[in-house]
Design a protein around this nucleic acid. Structure first.
Lengths: 218, 218
DNA sequence: CATTATTTTAATCAATTGATTAAACTTATT
DNA sequence: AATAAGTTTAATCAATTGATTAAAATAATG
């Protein structure tokens, strides 16, 4: 039987190496190929362990996926709240940090956006519940700050929903299209990274220009 | 045996109703759930036919998926070439028509972007080959037009790659996040549609403001 | 060291999967 | 109507799947 609750054996910090190996293999495969496309045997091979061990440690494929999904969610949204609710920073600074943070994050985990997008599509209510997205955005200091700013008072006022959609869209787009972009433009990993890094300064500029003034209709 | 080549029976235009039913069921399921998550029996049930008929008409699940994928690709990219290569329209007009066309298209086929994104990730080279994307973009009249315009000559000149990424990102974003956006903001289908329709005029304005002038660094 | 608890393994299970087959049924052709 | 060609069906196959089991191997405990 598996040591479940308070066990006495801890070789060192005891995050049983095998358990960890399985979870990491699962995360790699689930994140890049999705739930149904990955078999428990695939995971076992990737982790270099016996297939039965997967069930020994995680009961079922579903349970393991659930864990991976929650990990990916917190990886994707972790830290956002503290940026959005920082009382010391301006709107402009928030946009900058947010974009920069995500570009760095996605540079290390390029499969994350598509994984998240698939979860959003296949299970939106679960997605919303597991995160505090609703409060994360709607009750954020960022939104309050924006609604009280000149931006939302001017006649050029823009629905903040558009703003959020744009920020996310502009940031995720190059990662979602990465394989095609790289292939067509013949960019190696390094050149692609500089392209993406450029956007750290560009996106905030674009976002602010959207909200500051509209070009006159000709 | 199946009537393959030139058959003599044609009730009317003879796109055998069953064959069509299967293909439509397959498209619906494959597009929303992906290849591995859908079984041939799922398709049979959705189409209201016997499972063996699927193989009778399409040989294998893979072949059927291939057909659906190509159909989706041409659905997604159809008409783009004629917009990009129109010698009569200005850059501004091209951006406007492109955005408007896609917003209309995706409003009717909201699952398309994620399906395409998944294909891009899992099989980029096939994706590029099946389409003429490379020529579609790199050799388009649009690009030539842009490179010769004031936009690319000014000191504010912007890598056109960013422009294309932005256009796509801004257009697709609300559809990729649709379920969450609708849930959080409590938008019904109709209100979501007006939100998206607003972007038909907004996105071209944003795109042009990006390329026209940069806000000064403070 | 002996005993017990934990971890790992190989073998196997039942269910599901894509695919095939042979017979039944329908439609067209003469 | 008789025959042939095309279509549909139910039954079945072999392979793969997630999951279980019981025994073996390893580590911990007294």
């Amino acid at each position: 039987m598996k040591k479940t609750t308070t066990s006495k054996n801890n070789p060192r910090t005891d995050n049983t190496s095998t358990e960890q190996k399985i979870k990491e293999a699962a995360r790699k495969l689930f994140t890049s190929k999705g739930f149904t496309a990955v078999t428990t045997r695939d995971i076992a091979v990737e982790a270099g362990i016996n297939q039965a061990l997967l069930h020994y440690y995680f009961r079922s494929k579903e349970k393991l996926f659930e864990i991976v999904m929650l990990e990916n969610l917190s990886l994707f949204f972790g830290g956002v709240s503290s940026i959005l609710n920082n009382q010391q920073t301006s709107i402009e600074q928030k946009v900058e940090t947010l974009v920069a943070t995500y570009i760095d994050k996605l540079s290390q985990e390029p499969d994350l956006p598509l994984f998240i997008a698939n979860q959003v599509q296949s299970n939106p209510e679960k997605f919303i519940k597991n995160l505090g997205i609703e409060t994360l955005i709607k009750k954020s200091f960022f939104l309050k700050q924006f609604m009280e700013s000149d931006y939302s008072k001017s006649i050029h006022s823009l629905n903040p929903l558009h703003l959020i959609i744009n920020m996310i869209g502009l940031t995720l787009a190059p990662f979602l299209g990465a394989p095609v972009i790289r292939k067509i433009c013949k960019l190696d990993q390094q050149h692609f990274m500089t392209l993406v890094q450029e956007r750290k300064t560009l996106i905030p500029q674009w976002i602010l220009s959207m909200v500051k003034k509209r070009p006159e209709q000709k």
